[in-house]
Structures are given as structure tokens and as C-alpha cells.
């Protein structure tokens, strides 16, 4: 067999591995109900329940933030985030959480929110927060 054919096969194998691993490591968008059944982390999209308490008290714990979110199916759950309250959280229009259910609380490791920009109707701002510093 020619050397270049062997190398070609190796390259194709790696390319396939890349694609499969991407698909394998990709997550799903789900609801809180699905999160309860799922063992792994998933993405939940929803809206902040503005009638319920948004709790962050730096004096008691600078790394505890909790709030209530309704997912797209209308189910509500308490969400806990280990970190500070992201700025302007109250204004958020849509929230994307990454995390998992622990008991009846959703523990988010990543919060991304979209805020309606105050000044332009046609533009939406996004911000995000991570519980943990990215590590390798």
C-alpha cells in the first residue's frame, strides 16, 4: 500500500472522529421536566418569573444567586447559580441555562441572557455568566 494512501485513510479517520465527537458532545435543548429525567447537563431556554424572589445577598454569601424561571413549556423551577448575580438580570427577556436538576432545584453552571436594549427597539443585547472559570 502506498504511503500517501495510508496517510489519506488516517486523515479521513480523524475527520470522521471530529464529526462524531462533535455530535456526541453536543447537548440538547430541553425543559425542566426533561432535565429531571436526564443524568447529564442540558440547555434550558426560558423566561424569568418576575413575580418571584430574585435572591442574591453578598453579605450572606457572595457566591449564591437564585431565581425562578419558567421554561418554554410553562413549567417553573427554582434555579441556583454559584456566583454573583449577573448585572441587569431583572431586565432579561430570555434566559438560556446550562446545568442539571438536583432535587427540585436546577443548578446552572452557565447563564446567558438576552435583554431588550433600552434605547433601540430593534436590537437585543446578550450577556452571559459562568460559575466556573474555564479550565482545560
Amino acid at each position: 500500500m502506498k504511503k500517501s494512501s495510508i496517510f489519506g485513510i488516517v486523515v479521513i479517520a480523524i475527520a470522521i472522529a471530529v464529526i462524531i465527537s462533535t455530535y456526541g458532545s453536543s447537548s440538547t435543548y430541553g425543559s425542566f421536566t426533561e432535565a429531571k429525567q436526564s443524568q447529564s447537563d442540558l440547555h434550558v431556554i426560558g423566561y424569568l418569573d418576575k413575580n418571584k424572589e430574585l435572591y442574591y445577598d453578598a453579605h450572606k454569601d457572595a457566591n449564591y444567586f437564585s431565581f425562578y424561571m419558567k421554561d418554554k413549556k410553562g413549567n417553573e423551577s427554582k434555579v441556583v447559580f454559584t456566583g454573583t448575580k449577573p448585572q441587569d438580570f431583572e431586565r432579561s427577556e430570555q434566559i438560556v441555562l446550562v446545568g442539571h436538576m438536583t432535587g427540585n432545584e436546577f443548578h446552572a453552571s452557565h447563564i446567558q441572557m438576552k435583554c431588550p436594549s433600552k434605547y433601540t427597539q430593534d436590537k437585543v443585547e446578550t450577556t452571559e455568566a459562568d460559575a466556573k472559570q474555564g479550565s482545560i
Binding site: 449564591y64 454559584t82 456566583g83 432545584e105 443548578h107
Partner: peptide
């Protein structure tokens, strides 16, 4: 430091970076 929010919370082993 910080209040105890229940054993479940601590078990998540989330670092408290702030």
C-alpha cells in the same frame, strides 16, 4: 464562607470563586 444552603448545594462541588 457563606451560609449553608443545604448539603445538596455543597455536594455540587461548585467552586466559590468570589
Amino acid at each position: 464562607t457563606g451560609l449553608d444552603y443545604g448539603a445538596d448545594f455543597a455536594k455540587g462541588n461548585n467552586p466559590r470563586e468570589n
